[in-house]
Design a protein around this nucleic acid. Structure first.
Length: 908
RNA sequence: GGGCGCGUAGCUCAGCGGUAUGAGCACUGCGUUGACAUCGCAGGGGUCACUGGUUCGAUCCCAGUCGCGCCCACCA
């Protein structure tokens, strides 16, 4: 017996265990050896992570597709795994050390720290896997991978070495985005530009040879800056070659205040006469544009910042040059050395102001780069880093999408992809962290680099180079986390080994992910997949929206606005959450989740549960020998056809990744077709106890099973539970998760549709009028059908019992509508409810007049349309015909309503 | 500065070149008809942001305007 109410918490755990015990998630099941494979790799969540709404959405959608394809008979591999998430994980563990007041990362040393991170990972790293199981994800957990597994690490090393040998990875000294809190370089993508209110300081730089006089503009040149502290590193002032204001100064020198350095005033196109003063200070070591200008003009690079973003002046030969002869420079060093950048900014501005060197200070809104993890202001910093030649790798990746070898859904994301890929910059892949894949590069005594998959190979290279064995030191840096993620579709399948899995499941069929990681991940998988495998990593990329908070903001740990999906699972069940996310996953729009919505779909689950209870109580048990195509009872032929229409709708929608349409179709069918109408209409038949009753029981069971099947990808727990509980005596052939998706059988039946459609309309009309006329719900009234065709008479007689029950009628008879009755026009017939003593004739008269007005205006509209020669000439024939039919019907209806009104008034 | 997207019922959103059968929630009236009150029946509520254009026909296509959001970009 089914419980009176559905309690998801009671069954979900057991159902999940049943799937695992049945090895339902396993790829390469022997019974599917001949089946076409279907592969999908999970976007690996961070090991540090716990399930947030984004994961819930992403994995729900994947699971829906995976279950759908599994039921369609494919040999499904849903490859799970987690990401080591370099910076994030290192931060988590460092924070833990701090909280426990243990020695810090640097104090304990690299090896000890890494051991500590592994230990953390073993203890609490996989909570998210458990949470994905709570959500119902049917990943093949026996194949769980981690980006730092030995196998995946080997793939990383091999790709690195291969790319290095191909000249596609190289080391370069250039400006990088430096995070002064995390003390590492980060890639362009990890930089967030944040609009900030700041100031534009206009500084006066004295011209060499002209004694500075604040009152005489000829003695100085004005430059504007938003970062005054960088002025200590200025090595030039640039003006536009065609700027007449400054032409006379080009070739002369300015004297850098506080420092006394002679810096050239030079002409460069970079300078924009429209901006600031038209003259721009050039700080090659601290600004990306200035770096380029410096390169063009062979300017020195004077770095004035330490890694922590303190002014680094004293042990800095670039800066202290000439300090002996320059008391001002010495004073500057004394005051500012070691001061943090923003404090230094203030001091510098003060010093300049005292000397009359500030022309003006304007408020200024500009974008300031911040690290996406630390939220620290990023400093461009001149360092040695490893880079990937992304522009070269991007070419085939662009081409593959252009040729449709990989297709984005929705298609418009391709434009975003192309735009980024076509303007791609070198990818900085080295990070000054400890947790991650250490770069497989070793340095000899002369700093010559040897790149190899392991130290022995590097040693061999070194020996060849030096002619003897030498001590090598390994590059201390690790790789950007996304480097290993980029290999995910083939590294998880065993590459570089030629494994059977790799042969069978690569390329994968679809990638399902959020648009926020198209650049971070999708684009890079395309590049790496095409390079290493010479084949795209996936055929389709389904890009879904983000689940945002109520303000429309991206949810993130740092903002603290994360809603916990596990709370919703606790309260409403995983199925309700899944269904909500799928139903809201319309292409191209963000999802704002509300608990009310989840509650609504929990109620839907309860509704289905109760339908199953009805089936149980009425012995509606699935019968193996039942053939829905052979059904004789019209009602049964109708519901069989409806179920098949739903099958088609769900199938087509899922094939096109239209999750919301698929969810909507099955929802509507179960609640508003099967429960609202079929179960109500079948009650009298089942009560009959004859052959028709037997057929109806079987059909009710068949359609319920079909509903469970179609709903299973969305609500796997509930449907699996009911599938088991409703099993016939001989048992089910399999778990629902492995049951076949229904095939199209041509069950639609136009005659049945017409007949049941008529029945539904009749009942609805009577109910509607009863409510409108305030007929007490309990009152049973007679129904008199006038002007009925033979067909209507037959139908009314056949469904008499149903009508009495559902329309709350006393009896049904045929004849002239009596006076003082409520009248309803239904097709050719007039339905009369003699309610003279119950209803208000006047109100009924008004009601009829309103109906007549409505039909009248419809007729006028149709007339106007049909009188329009252009419409008749140019609109498609079927549209014109439809309007004509509509007009005929409306006119017939109007006539009948007029008659009805006359009869009513006769009663007055 | 580029690019993308959104403005449809009170709220959150679907949808769509041919009468808006819209969904969930909220709201109103009625209802203890043995599957279901986590429910049933009936109902109220929309000039589909605005202005032009294309079309026989526009909420849907195009252009522009206004409002909002996101992404990309080196602007002192």
């Amino acid at each position: 017996m089914l419980d009176k109410t559905y309690q998801p918490q009671r069954i979900e755990g057991a159902i999940y265990r049943a799937w695992e015990e049945g090895r339902a998630f396993a790829a390469g099941r022997p019974d599917r050896a001949e089946a076409k494979p279907f592969a999908i790799v999970i976007p690996p969540p961070n090991v540090t992570g716990s399930l947030h709404m984004g994961h819930a959405l992403n994995n729900t959608l994947q699971d829906v597709i995976v279950r759908f394809e599994r039921m369609r008979g494919r040999d499904v591999l849903w490859q799970p795994g987690t990401d080591h998430a370099g910076i994030a994980t290192q931060m988590v563990v460092e924070r833990q050390l701090m909280e426990r007041q243990e020695q810090g990362r640097r104090a304990m040393g690299r090896d000890a720290f890494i051991r500590r991170v592994w230990q953390w990972k073993e203890e609490s790293g996989n909570t998210i896997v458990g949470q994905l199981k709570r959500l119902g994800c049917s990943c093949d957990w026996t194949r769980l991978r981690f980006t730092m597994d030995e196998g995946l690490s080997r793939a990383v090393r091999k790709v690195f070495v291969d790319l290095y040998r191909a000249g596609l990875i190289y080391k370069d000294k250039r400006l990088v985005n430096w995070d002064p809190e995390l003390l590492t370089a980060i890639s362009d993508l990890e930089v967030e530009q944040i609009e900030t209110k700041g100031h534009l300081w206009h500084l006066r730089y004295p011209i060499e040879g002209k004694p500075f006089n604040a009152g005489d503009p000829a003695t100085f040149i004005v430059v504007a800056t938003t970062r005054p502290e960088t002025m200590l590193g200025d090595t030039a002032v640039a003006v536009h070659p065609s700027d007449k204001r400054y032409k006379h100064l080009v070739g002369k020198n300015a004297i850098l205040p506080l420092v006394g350095r002679r810096i050239p005033i030079l002409a460069d196109e970079y300078s924009d006469p429209e901006k600031g003063s038209g003259a721009v200070k050039i700080t090659p070591a601290h600004d990306f544009n200035d770096f380029e200008v410096g390169r063009r003009h062979g300017l020195p690079m004077v770095n004035v910042l330490s890694p922590e973003a303190k002014l680094l002046l004293d042990p800095n030969p670039d800066f202290t040059q000439g300090v002996e002869a320059n008391p001002e420079l010495r004073a500057t060093i004394l005051e500012l050395n070691g001061v943090f950048r923003f404090a230094a900014r203030k001091l510098i501005v003060e010093r300049l102001a005292t000397q009359g060197l500030i022309e003006k200070i304007e408020p200024h809104v500009h974008t300031v780069p911040h690290g996406d993890r630390s939220n620290a202001v990023i400093e461009p910093r001149l360092t040695d880093q490893w880079y990937v030649d992304a522009a070269t790798l991007a070419k085939p990746a662009i081409d593959a999408v252009k040729r449709g070898r990989t297709v984005f859904v929705p298609k418009n994301w391709e434009a975003t992809y192309f735009h980024w890929m076509e303007n791609i910059q070198p990818w900085c892949i080295s990070r000054q962290l400890w947790w991650g894949h250490q770069i497989p590069a070793w340095y000899g005594p002369d700093d010559k680099v040897f790149v190899a998959e392991d130290e022995a190979a590097a040693q061999a290279q070194a020996k060849e180079n030096y002619g003897k064995a030498v001590a090598l030191t390994r590059d201390e840096d690790v790789l950007d986390t996304w480097f290993s993620s980029a290999l995910w579709p083939f590294s998880t399948l065993g590459w570089p080994e030629k494994t059977p899995e790799l042969a069978r499941y690569y390329p994968t069929d679809v990638l399902i992910t959020g648009f926020d990681i198209i650049f971070f991940w999708v684009a890079r998988m395309m590049m790496m997949g095409l390079h290493a495998m010479e084949e795209v990593p996936f055929r389709d990329v389904y890009i879904h929206a983000l689940v945002r908070d109520e303000k429309g903001q991206k949810m993130s740990k740092s903002k603290g606005n994360v809603i916990d999906p596990l709370d919703l699972i606790e309260t409403y069940g995983a199925d309700a959450l899944r269904f909500t996310l799928a139903a809201m996953a319309a292409q191209g729009r963000d999802i704002k989740l509300s608990a009310a919505r989840v509650e609504g779909y929990r109620n839907f689950a309860t509704k289905l549960w109760n339908a199953a209870r009805f089936a149980e109580i009425n012995d509606c048990v699935p019968r193996a020998d039942f053939d829905p195509a052979a059904a004789k009872v019209t009602l049964n032929r109708w519901i069989a056809g409806e179920s098949e229409r739903t099958l088609a709708a769900v199938t087509e929608a899922l094939e096109a990744f239209r999750f919301n349409e698929a969810a909507g179709a099955i929802y509507h069918f179960i609640w508003h077709v099967y429960c609202d109408w079929y179960l109500e209409l079948c009650k009298p038949i089942i009560a009959g106890g004859d052959d028709a009753a037997a057929e109806t029981r079987a059909m009710a069971a068949f359609v319920l099973d079909r509903a469970l099947t179609l709903l299973h990808p969305f609500m796997p727990f509930l449907t699996e539970e009911l599938w088991a509980k409703r099993a016939p005596e001989e048992g089910r052939g399999s778990l629902l998760i492995l049951a076949p998706w229904p095939a199209h059988q041509g069950l639609a039946d136009a005659e049945a549709d017409a007949e049941i459609g008529w029945l539904i309309r009749l009942i609805s009309e009577v109910r509607s009028v009863r409510a409108e006329m305030n007929v007490p719900a309990g009152a049973k009234v007679p129904l008199i059908i006038g002007g009925a065709s033979e067909e209507t008479k037959a139908r009314a007689a056949h469904y008499e019992e149903t009508l009495l029950r559902l329309a709350r009628l006393e009896r049904v008879e045929f004849g002239k509508p009596p006076t003082g009755a409520v009248q309803i026009v239904l097709d050719e017939a007039v339905l009369a409810l003699p309610l003279a003593d119950i209803i208000d004739i006047d109100a009924e008269s008004k009601r009829l007049k309103r109906e007549i007005d409505k039909v009248g205006s419809e007729i006028r509209q149709l007339d106007a349309k049909l009188a329009n020669e252009k419409f008749v000439a140019r609109a498609p024939e079927h549209v014109v015909e439809e309007q004509r039919e509509r007009k005929t019907e409306a006119e017939a209806m109007a006539a009948k309503l007029e008659q009805a009104l006359k009869r009513l008034e006769a009663a007055l």
